[in-house]
Amino acid sequence: MGSILSGAEAASLVRALPGVDAVGLEARAAGLSTRSVKTTSKAWAIDLAISMIDLTTLEGADTPGKVRSLAAKALRPDGDAPSTAAVCVYPSMVAVAKEALAGSGVLVASVATGFPAGQVPLDVRLADTESAVRAGADEIDMVINRGAFLAGDLERVFHEIKAVKAAAGDARLKVILETGELATYDDVRRASWLAMYAGADFIKTSTGKVGVNATLPVTLLMMQAVRDYRALTGVQVGVKPAGGIRNTKDAIKYLVTVNETLGDDWLRNEWFRFGASSLLNDLLMQRQKLKTGHYSGPDYVTVD
């Protein structure tokens, strides 16, 4: 869906957003973290979390072999465990992933736009996006221009997201805010709205490549933004925390937060994802524990 706003309008709306009280936000996130999820509800949550993972490899050392191994894991993580939502790779690996996952329903997501810094000219970022889509990417994970955002050039950020959205065509667009670089909750909220006004299908916290990645308060704040955006426009936008979510306990905290902030409408992998790599094995080990009654170990899940 194209934005009906001009860049100036979007920028001015975003600047007028009310502030966020950091302590209150963190207190709410901490409160949600105290939820205790046991037995049947835990089993349900673990499978849901598995199905929401964008199983990710984003390394210079990525090879077709590595990506095929990851794709196999995404398809059949362990026994009767559900598939993950997608695998997430660099554009150069999209074709390999696409072939490995052909006909499976597991999607291929690709980071593009000069990931992770985005510090390349816009035409290069657009070409990057188009090439990923041509190679078969179902979803594009773009990074916003943090430099322009922090310099106050919100209109430029808005126009760039719109341009990438156009370049992505039918692929769903996840807009990475890189919240660790935006530094304040007020800016995270502004960036969330700016991305949504520009046509984001998902807003995503992080690249996983900076010091601070997804945190529960930041993700909660982004959830509040998509909730409010739908209330205002009728358009539903997804949320994807990425980086730093490594174990089942953390994943369940996020799901509890989705449950109590957004509700059922977002409790599906169409609207909520985890950008993660090591999380999957921890979920699988916990899954085994629930089935067998004893704790599992790393040798009982596959290294991919």
């Binding site: 209150g24 963190e26 919240t179 530094a183 909750y185 945190t215 529960l216």
Partner: peptide, 13 residues
């Protein structure tokens, strides 16, 4: 009054 501003401190959890 709350005293806190920066995001990314990892929150309280």
């Amino acid at each position: 009054h709350p005293a806190g501003m920066a995001a990314g401190a990892g929150g309280a959890y």
